[in-house]
């Protein structure tokens, strides 16, 4: 009898704990978020970043708001690489960005981009070229809508093909079905190939953002290898090869070099909520401008 009573008590306790767990977690996430906001209001960007990173880790899911705040805080600190990374993540649909948030994120991204380009011009570091119509086209082809269109055209092509055969067997007119089959088949092929190529590019060479202010790209993996060029923080690269601790980063122009894995952040990474290897409280390695004496 006593054992049964204990079992019931343990069961009730477990149910209570399981029921309360999300609420408890929600509280600590909100506490960390609010703490970050308070610190940001006080101008303590390092403290705010630490609090928001904590909230992000506790939340365990993408949040455009947290990414946006993190990106803006890094931008305020002059850390263009991490600012670009977080602001780009803020635009990811998985974080549920609102229209206003997306607009603000794009606005901040534009400022960060301008500053990164200016810094690259002064230090001689390489940076990815600005987006062109071709990039927009590639971006569009990667969109799920193109994938759905290709699939739908394929199914319609099948249906039209069946009807075409049926009509042919009954000796009816084939002009309309032939034209439709050609149209849907072409759309299916073209959209499918382009969407597939863009998906493959993302899978084999994922996009990443250079996090550190200036990263030396070497001819091989290892600090003893020759430095070939430097990449500006905030530049978008593709990761085309990996070895433990190092990745081969490719700029859009095709220039390649090995950089430490911790110096880049992958945009499509499933572990994107993981805290980035961030700068210390001392701030980024090199800030810009070096002196602002407009008086």
């Amino acid at each position: 009898m006593r054992i049964a009573g204990r079992l019931v008590a343990i069961l009730l306790l477990a149910i209570a704990l399981v029921g309360l767990a999300p609420a408890v977690r929600a509280d600590v996430v909100d506490d960390a978020f609010a703490e970050g906001n308070e610190r940001a209001e006080a101008g303590d960007w390092d403290g705010a970043i630490a609090a928001w990173q904590r909230a992000r880790g506790l939340l365990g899911q993408p949040s455009s708001v947290l990414s946006y705040n993190l990106g803006t805080a890094h931008a305020e600190r002059g850390d263009h690489g991490r600012a670009t990374f977080h602001l780009r993540q803020a635009l990811d649909f998985r974080g549920s960005p609102t229209a206003e948030l997306a607009e603000a994120a794009r606005y901040n991204l534009a400022i960060v981009r301008r500053r990164a380009e200016l810094q690259a011009a002064t230090t001689g570091a390489l940076v990815d070229r600005p987006q062109t119509w071709w990039d927009l086209l590639v971006e569009t082809l990667r969109a799920p809508g193109v994938g759905w269109t290709a699939l739908l055209c394929g199914v319609l092509w099948l249906v039209v093909l069946i009807e075409h055969v049926r009509r042919a067997r009954r000796g009816r007119s084939l002009g309309v079905t032939r034209a439709l089959a050609i149209a849907f088949g072409s759309l299916w092929l073209v959209a499918g190939v382009l969407h597939g190529v863009s998906l493959r590019a993302d899978r084999t060479a994922p996009r990443a953002i250079v996090l550190d202010m200036r990263v030396d790209a070497r001819e091989g993996p290892g600090t003893h290898r020759k430095v070939e060029f430097a990449i500006q923080g905030g530049a978008q690269v593709r990761i085309v090869d990996r070895t433990p601790g190092w990745v081969r980063a490719q700029l859009p122009g095709g220039v390649e070099g090995w950089v430490p894995e911790s110096a880049v952040g992958e945009l499509e990474s499933t572990a994107s909520v993981r805290p980035l290897p961030g700068p210390t409280a001392a701030g980024p390695e090199r800030d810009t401008p070096a002196s602002v004496d407009a008086s």
Binding site: D30, T72, S96, A104
Partner: peptide, 22 residues
């Protein structure tokens, strides 16, 4: 820069992964 998003709670709107995965 555009200001940070204030408030005391993190908006939680769970968006599932797209059905049409690659």
């Amino acid at each position: 820069f555009a200001p940070i998003v204030g408030g005391s709670t993190v908006p939680r709107e769970v968006v599932g992964e797209r059905w049409l995965t690659p």
